[in-house]
């Protein structure tokens, strides 16, 4: 059988899920990004311990500002969005205000992430 959706790809791309859908898809991107990074990170430390020198190449990637901005986006968004999901799910009465919760989430995420990006870029430029 395989993949069987009732919507075409063009309909899916035009889906206007707005804020909740944006946080849903960014939560997935963040989770996937962390899963890939942490898997590579743990495996490479293990491989290094076995004597295969792979760490220097990977460290160059981890130290790169673009990678740091990406992985910090994954971690911070997944953490803040996950806290919102957890609180709304454990206290269902709060879900009346789920749109407001999204605004609070972005009000927390944007300043913290923006400041971090500035620090990461300043460090990358200043050495």
């Amino acid at each position: 059988m395989g993949l069987n959706r009732n919507v075409s790809l063009s309909t899916a791309l035009r889906y206007k899920g707005q804020g909740p859908f944006l946080s849903f898809i960014l939560h997935r991107i963040g989770g996937l990004g962390m899963a890939v990074f942490i898997t590579i990170h743990i495996l490479s430390v293990y491989i290094e311990a076995l004597g295969w020198k792979i760490g220097d190449i990977l460290n160059d990637i981890y130290m790169n500002w673009a990678f740091q901005i990406f992985i910090f986006f994954c971690v911070l968004f997944h953490a803040i969005n996950g806290l919102r999901i957890t609180l709304l799910d454990l206290f269902p009465r709060l879900s009346t205000y789920h749109r407001e919760a999204l605004w609070i989430e972005w009000a927390l995420f944007l300043p913290v992430f923006g400041l971090s990006v500035i620090v990461i870029l300043a460090t990358a430029v200043g050495g």
């Binding site: 059988m1 395989g2 993949l3 069987n4 997935r28 989770g31 996937l32 962390m34 899963a35 942490i38």
Partner: peptide, 15 residues
């Protein structure tokens, strides 16, 4: 994390 990956996979693998 692994359970999260299963949740994502379930959206695309349905048999």
């Amino acid at each position: 994390g692994v359970h999260g990956l299963v949740v994502i996979a379930d959206d695309y693998i349905v048999t």
